Computed example of a mutant assay.
Amino acid sequence: MPPSTIPALRQQRLGAELRKLREHSGLTSTAAAGQLGLKQTQISNIESGRYAVSADRVRTMARTYNCADTALVDALATMTGGRKRGWWDEYRDHLPAGLVDLAELEHYAAELRVALVIHIPALLQTTDHARALFRTVFPPLQQYEIEHRLTHRIKRQGILHRSDPTPYTATVHEAALRMGFGGRDVASTQLKHLVTMSEFPRITIRVIPFGNASFHGTGQGIDYVAGAVPQLDTVQLDTHHGCEFLDGEAQLDKYRSVVDHMEASALPPDPSRDLIHRIIQEL
């Protein structure tokens, strides 16, 4: 199969995990190629995400690499199948690659946990709130760029509304609820939308109130995306230069602990909903 010109994040991750298995087995790419009946360049292209690989090939590679973790191998096998196009691919010519990759990551996630201090989570934003945010981006976006980002963001929210919605936990600081982007009417509608979404069966919204001295988070938004097995988890960070994806074991441990602590610092769901109601009344 010819190499992919634009390796999807999912295919890149599959290749990276296969490389980890090979390195853990002590095999060089040349030695692995010899045992698998492949060329060394084929191994390199698979591990870089440029070559698609079948589920059978993944299982063969895992056996060759003496991987006994059947849950991990099964999860890797589900990530195969070549370059499958999703709705997000429509935006590859219009948006930064990180935003497109994030939509793909969310689509396949087993669970999503997000923690934010300044902003409402993207998957819980109303159209008017999101548009108001995009108008604050620096350097300023052109109107057509705003509309591309807006439609992309709204489509991302589909994972919360499908027949088998992705479990979603959002931990939000009270500061984000009081920012008032777009003015009073937009802010009020946005907060009412949060209340509505908090009543969905697989959505949990928790608020960290002002005055909670145990809270030690930063203004950086964190998306913790759970894979089929913990080894396939991914952290996405919002930065000034765009999306940053982390999947190292130590990195996952660190940010899992950060999100755990932020959730523990927040009010339970019902008191969180009550606090949102009070903020609406104060607008």
Rank of each mutant, 00 (worst) to 15 (best):
G26D: 09
G26N: 02
G26T: 11
L27H: 13
L27T: 13
L27N: 06
L27E: 11
T28N: 02
T28L: 08
S29Q: 14
T30E: 06
A31S: 11
A33P: 05
G34N: 08
G34D: 14
Q35P: 01
Q35I: 12
L36T: 04
L36Y: 02
L36H: 05
L38N: 13
K39V: 05
Q40I: 00
Q40V: 07
Q40F: 02
Q40R: 11
Q40S: 06
Q42V: 05
S44Q: 08
S44F: 03
S44R: 11
E47K: 14
S48M: 10
G49A: 15
G49T: 09
G49L: 07
R50S: 05
Y51P: 11
Y51I: 08
Y51Q: 13
A52Y: 03
A52L: 01
A52C: 01
A52N: 08
A55M: 12
A55E: 05
D56T: 09
R57D: 14
R57C: 02
V58N: 10
V58S: 08
V58P: 04
R59V: 03
R59L: 07
R59D: 02
R59Q: 07
T60H: 10
M61I: 15
A62P: 01
R63A: 13
R63Y: 03
R63K: 15
R63T: 15
T64G: 12
T64D: 07
Y65W: 06
C67L: 01
A68D: 15
T70N: 00
T70C: 01
T70L: 03
A71W: 00
L72D: 08
L72M: 05
V73P: 03
V73K: 07
D74H: 01
D74C: 02
A77M: 14
A77R: 01
A77G: 12
T78L: 14
T78F: 04
T78Y: 05
T78M: 11
M79D: 09
G81S: 03
G81E: 02
G81M: 09
G82H: 12
R83A: 12
